[in-house]
Design a protein around this nucleic acid. Structure first.
Lengths: 122, 122, 122, 122
DNA sequence: GTGGTCTAGACCACC
DNA sequence: GTGGTCTAGACCACA
C-alpha cells in the first residue's frame, strides 16, 4: 500500500494560476505577476515560482517576453480547460465515484448537494 | 498561501479499514486483524496501526476486548457510513463542485462519466 | 543584433545522452547511469543532471523506475532520431547553407570533404 | 567534460564584417564604418568594436589610415573567403558530418534540403 | 541505494 | 527591472 498524496508545491502553484486564468482574473495576452512578485506573494522560493511558470509555459498556457515578464497565451482558457478536465477525470473522479458507491449515495442526493452548493456560491 | 501536505498515515489506514467494513469484508461483531498483523501487512510501524485503531475506537466503529483483539462494533456500518459521508461532503465535494463550475462541466456530462465508470466496475 | 549562443549545460548533457543512445551505447530498456553518478562523472551539480534527465523523460526518451533508476525507453532510438533531426534542420542547417553560399562552395566540394571525413572516422 | 560558453562578442562582430565583405556590401579599398559608428549601430562598447577591427586588421582583411578610418584591404574578399572556409571546415563541418552520420541521414536528403533552402532565399 | 523537491544565494543576458 | 541557470545542501519517499 502506498501512503502518499503529495503534490509538489510548484504544481500546486501552477494549478492556482490555472484557476485564476479560468476565472478570468487575467485576460489572454495580459501580463501576470513576475516570478519574484509571485514568490514573495506566496512565500515561496523564486526557483519554485519559476518552475511553476516553466511548467505552464511548456503546456502553452503562458509565454514569456524576455526581460519583460510572463503573459497569458492566446488560447490559454481553452487549453487550460482541456488539460484540467483530463486531469480531473483521470485523478479525481475515480475516487469520487468509488466513494459514492461505497456510501450507496443516490445520484439525486448528489444533485441536491450540488444545488445547495450553488446557492451558497452562485 | 498554505500548501497541501500528506495526510497522516494512520488516517489513511483508518480510511482503509472503513472501506473494508463498508464493503462487508468483516461483519459486525467480527474480529479484525491484530495491530501487529495489520502493521506487518501494510508494512507500517505498529504504533501507526495502533493510532489508526484508537481513532476508529474513539468514533465507535470498532471496540476492544482486552487480551483478545479488536472487533467491529454493533451498527459499525451505519456509523461508518455517516462519518464518511459527512467527511466526503465536507472535504471532497466542495472541491469537486468547484472544479465542475470552473470547467463549465454539465451535470449530464458527469452522469455519463459515472455510467462509464459503473460499466467498468459493476 | 544578438550576441548569444548559450546552450544551458543541462541541455548539452541531454544532447550527450541522446548521442550515446543513438550510438547504441545502451540498448533500449537498459539502465543508464544514476543521477549522482552522472553528476560526478561530468563534474556537475546533481540538480543539473536531474534536469537533463527530466528533460529527456518528458520527451519519452528515457523513463524512471522509482527507487531504481532511469532506463532507455522502448522506442528511444527512433524518438531521439526524430527530435534530433528536427532540431538539426531547424537550428544548424540554415547556418551551414548560408555559409556555403557565402563562400560560394560547390556541393561537390562538400561531398569530397564528407568522404575525407568518413575516411578518418569510418 | 567541458561545456560550451558564448563566443566572445568581438569575434561575432568580426564574423559579421566578413559576411558583409563577402556579400560585396563594401568594395575593396572602400571605407567601412568608424569604430564609433559601428559601436553605436550594434549597441556595443566601443572597445569591443576596436577589438573586432584589430582582429580583422591582423588578418589582412582591413587596414587603417590613421586619422581617416578603416578600409577594406586589397584582395580582402579572397583572404576572407580563405580564412572563413578554413574555419568552417575546421569548426563547423565536423559537427555537421558527425550529426549526419548519427542520424543516418542520406546525402541526397541533405541536398534536397539545400534545394529547399535555395528556393526560399534564391 | 534511487529520484524528486525545496531553499538559498550567486551570476548571467536581455530590456 | 525581467527570466534563466547553476551550485550547494537539505529533506523526503520509495526500494
Amino acid at each position: 500500500m502506498e501512503f502518499l498524496k503529495n503534490d509538489a508545491i510548484y504544481l500546486q502553484i501552477a494549478d492556482l494560476m490555472c484557476e485564476r486564468i479560468l476565472r478570468g482574473e487575467w485576460g489572454e495576452e495580459e501580463r501576470i505577476p513576475s516570478v519574484r512578485e509571485l514568490a514573495v506573494d506566496l512565500e515561496v522560493n523564486p526557483n519554485t515560482a519559476i518552475r511553476a511558470y516553466a511548467y505552464l509555459q511548456e503546456r502553452g498556457i503562458i509565454y514569456n517576453k524576455r526581460g519583460i515578464g510572463y503573459f497569458v497565451a492566446e488560447n490559454a482558457v481553452q487549453t487550460t480547460r482541456s488539460l484540467m478536465k483530463a486531469a480531473f477525470i483521470r485523478n479525481d473522479l475515480p475516487h469520487v465515484f468509488k466513494t459514492l458507491r461505497l456510501l450507496g449515495m443516490d445520484l439525486n442526493e448528489l444533485l441536491s448537494l450540488y444545488r445547495e452548493h450553488l446557492e451558497k456560491k452562485p
